[in-house]
Nucleic acid binder design. Structure first.
Length: 312
DNA sequence: ACCCAGGGGCAAG
DNA sequence: CTTGCCCATGGG
């Protein structure tokens, strides 16, 4: 299909989604995965998006081809750094992901980098998701399947302390006590408050979900990178802001599509194209009495090469 | 308001 | 192989 301004590689590599795998398909380097329970294999050739599985309508919705990127870029015209990042990230789109899949995936994200979130996602999909034809990536498990599995079983997928949060949230969704769809018609503030009631979801994770699944394009998830970026916009010596204050500041500075602009800045910072003052050193003394061993088996060399971070 | 557990991959030594 | 680093949430 013909697609509007779009960069498949940058979009899938920007930390929004964790289950697309690089493959050689459709005549070159592409990706395979799924959208909900529909298996899809993709490859971009210029303005053409080659696909196997799915439909133009499904892909257009998922990749948000309806977002007017030119208008989004213009929205921060008065901010030189954002302008520059927006231009460098042309074609990077903030996606519109399935609600439960996105919500559950970001519960996995705290304290983890993209590469590891991908591994956890794949482990969960393989153990509890429905296998699909034409792709090695199973669908994301239903809430009921995860609730039924139990915390200890989920922990075996390498979730660590996130197993408890994911299991508790999955149980709330499976019982109908929490319905992801019910947030669709709420204001962003109300929806955020509801998300933050769920175990394992704090303000940052809630904002990621709002941005990547609920299309709240003004929301700015503030992690250490974004905090660093926003901090660099302020005068040296300004008073420190809390993360929430930085978030408000970011929304004001970056305009009505602050979430999009933030994604561009984040991507620039992660790829080293945006220079930041202090990577921040920590004078942290470490009382370490222990020695350990333990080695894990097989790293999968074909996992996504995204360097980086969660959130966004 | 402050402090810190907790987990596993990964880069560096 | 060993060590240090990464970093959101929740509970004390």
């Amino acid at each position: 299909m013909e697609c509007p301004e779009f960069d498949l590689v940058m979009t899938l590599g920007s930390g929004q989604t964790f289950h697309w795998r690089p493959v050689n398909a459709l005549g070159g380097e592409g990706f395979t995965g799924c959208i909900g329970s529909t298996s899809v294999t993709l490859r971009q050739e210029g303005s053409r998006l080659l696909y196997r599985g799915g439909s133009p309508e499904l892909l257009s919705r998922y990749f948000a081809f309806d977002h007017d990127l030119e208008a989004i870029r213009s929205s921060c015209a008065g901010h030189p750094v954002s302008q520059s990042a927006s231009l460098a990230c042309r074609g990077l789109r903030v996606m519109r992901q399935p609600l439960w899949e996105c919500l559950a995936s970001f519960i996995l994200s705290p304290m983890k980098q993209v590469a590891h979130i991908s591994q956890m996602s794949l482990a969960l999909r393989s153990a509890y998701g429905t296998p699909l034809k034409d792709t090695p990536v199973p669908a994301f498990p239903e809430a009921g399947s995860l609730a039924e599995a139990g915390v200890e079983e989920l922990r075996k997928c390498g979730l660590g302390f996130r197993a408890k949060s994911l299991h508790a949230t999955a149980s709330l969704v499976a019982s109908g006590e929490f319905d992801p769809e019910s947030l669709l018609m709420m204001s962003t503030g109300e929806a955020r408050a509801e998300l933050c009631k769920l175990p394992g979801i704090g303000r940052k994770v809630a904002n990621c979900i709002l941005l990547f699944a609920y299309e709240r394009l003004e929301v700015v998830p503030v992690d250490v990178w974004v905090a660093r970026i926003l901090g660099s916009f302020r005068k040296p010596g300004s008073r420190k802001m809390t993360l929430e204050q930085l978030e408000i500041y970011g929304e004001r500075q970056l305009g009505p599509y602050a979430g999009y602009i933030q994604q561009y800045l984040f991507h620039q910072a992660r790829t080293g194209e945006l220079k930041l003052p202090k990577p921040k050193s920590k004078p942290k003394p470490k009382p370490k009495p222990k020695a350990s061993r333990k080695k894990m088996g097989g790293t999968n060399p074909s996992l996504p090469i995204v360097g980086g971070k969660t959130f966004l």
